[in-house]
Nucleic acid binder design. Structure first.
Lengths: 334, 334
DNA sequence: ATGAAAGCGCTAACAG
DNA sequence: CTGTTAGCGCTTTCAT
């Protein structure tokens, strides 16, 4: 391993000078810098990351903390972060919280021990106050997919209420007036926001949403299937169902079809997220696109900005908008 | 930050003793150890990872290098590694090669610079010799999903040939005798192995596989769709199609159905991998399960074993077997 | 603009 | 079994 000392010796300068050149500091003579750089190149010197992190107590690393990684949704987050990291020459370290409450904080702590100041957190369990505290302690902490008003400028989130509205408005445009909803039990704001967005849009036409129009379950295909069965078994009419996410929507379509309903002719279905699964099912799913990859990229860049030239990134909000992707699971009502 | 010195001072011992206790070395007196441990706990001491990595030139970190992360397949790898890492108290660092050849090696180099000796590599571009060389240099390098005979004991792979055989045998059992194949253009051994497995099984019944029975494309849904169209347009008969993976299989089912064929009544379809998509489509896809999550866990444990008690892990091979998952896309031929 | 020297927190001989 | 000592490779005052 070639060290900074080797470079210094060969170049005939001190280690301080080499260090300055490496870090691109200005206080080095032009020819001296050029010479040192050539030696660095010739020797193939690369700074020891751990030594650097030891002395400076930080490292060029992006940390991701999410509940899990296997699903497409979180895969997209990881992908976005990795992509931004590559561009900025950062490494990425991940720590999934395995859906266990206190491991979320544990994951953050361990990232910090590595000197990681740039953390993209998809928090499911930690409360707003703790999050605000964390944000104060960790300059590069970004909350993704959740809005905490006390640290608004540190949240990269999406307007779920608008998403719900847009979904309903699309259905309204297509002539639908009788709705059913499949929502999720998960412990965060998303399902409620999406549902409230729906309610908002509906209230303009004085259409109310009754409890019997709503079924819920875990945000997965099987539960979407069951939820649709539940809805069907109730004494209600609906020409459209709005599901919490694509997986539930696909489950619902399958249940509907298994019950002899045609999608979209008898019942239209709309999902949220626009993941791969939305084009695997038949009919192809009309859904609200959530630009999660882009959000993750953006969050990463923001985090890095925050730890490099702070002022530039302050006092802004970072709200993304969903958009409708029309496919084949929604049609004009007869 | 509380350091080893603080602990030593408070406990009235030397830093070496503290270090020994922390690392669980045996050469410490029982009561001394207990005392030190209580001080560690009282002070909330946690060793500085970077300092440790600096002096020992290694770190308890698992690195993952894969072409990308967003797909379900690689998400499962990441998940498996993360899970094993958690159990062993390792961190995980990831570096995707973005499907660019030389970045694969670059990703490995950068992992090593962090002191990471445990690398799970899903290599797409690097040749066998380079891989063997790498394995010699990096004690904890494991190749996942590929077999390199020179470093057999360092590969965690799956028997694709057997997979192909099993798929065909299942179809044979169901009375099928006329086959079509959708394979992939990707630059690795998998497609050929799966196809050769099919050929093997077929040759026992003297059924040969002609070029016109095969169509190919990228391993994605759209290309599976197109490949099935191509097959349909040719002047051949088939009652079953075997696709390279689930995505292509689903694409093929969709194309078949769009062309007025019933699946499985007119044409049975079988896929490989058993990802989420296999239960999103209609009919649910019969497919060969590839235990990729388990393989990733296993590979991670193996890697750690290799860097902790080497002898235990040598001279073994690590071959996984796929298994058939029967769903609804295959039926008895009429 | 450059160098000397101190030290980040830890491990690892080597003594005893 | 425990302590002393010397670094690991780098950054960072503080001189010059």
């Amino acid at each position: 391993m070639v060290t900074i000392k080797d470079v210094a010796r060969v170049a005939g300068v001190s280690t301080s000078t080499v260090s300055r050149v490496v870090r691109g500091q200005s206080k080095v003579g032009d020819q001296c810098r050029a010479h040192v750089q050539s030696v660095i190149k010739a020797l193939g010197y690369r700074p020891n990351i751990n030594a650097r992190a030891l002395v400076s107590q930080k490292s060029e690393m992006l940390g991701i903390v999410t509940p899990e990684f296997s699903s497409n949704f979180f895969g997209n987050i990881a992908s976005g972060v990795a992509s931004a990291a590559r561009n900025a020459n950062y490494k990425v370290m991940m720590s999934n919280s395995q859906d266990i409450p206190h491991t979320e904080l544990e994951a953050i702590a361990s990232l910090r021990e590595h000197g990681c100041q740039n953390i993209i957190l998809h928090s499911k369990f930690t409360d707003d106050n703790t999050l605000a505290q964390l944000a104060a302690d960790i300059p590069g902490l970004i909350i993704i997919n959740r809005f905490v008003s006390a640290i608004a400028s540190r949240c990269v989130w999406i307007d779920n209420i608008a998403g719900g509205k847009m979904a309903v408005e699309h259905l309204l445009d297509k002539g639908h007036r009788q709705f059913a909803f499949i929502t999720s039990d998960i412990q965060n704001q998303d399902p409620d926001d999406r549902l409230n967005g729906c309610r908002n849009a509906l209230s303009k036409l004085n259409i109310s949403v009754e409890p019997e129009q709503i079924a819920s379950g875990l945000p997965e295909m099987e539960d979407g299937y069951r939820a649709a069965e539940t809805l069907l078994a109730r004494d209600i009419n609906f020409t459209a169902v709005i599901a919490y996410n694509d997986a539930m929507a696909v489950g619902a379509m399958n249940a509907l079809q298994d019950a002899g309903k045609k999608v979209p002719e008898d019942v239209s279905v709309i999902g949220f997220d626009n993941l791969l699964i939305a084009t695997a099912c038949r009919p192809y799913l009309t859904t609200m696109n959530y630009p999660i990859f882009d959000m993750a990229c953006y969050a990463s860049r923001l985090s890095i900005l925050l730890t490099t030239c702070k002022e530039e990134a302050e006092n802004k909000t970072h709200l993304f908008m969903p958009s409708l992707v029309e496919r084949d699971s929604v049609c004009q009502v007869k």
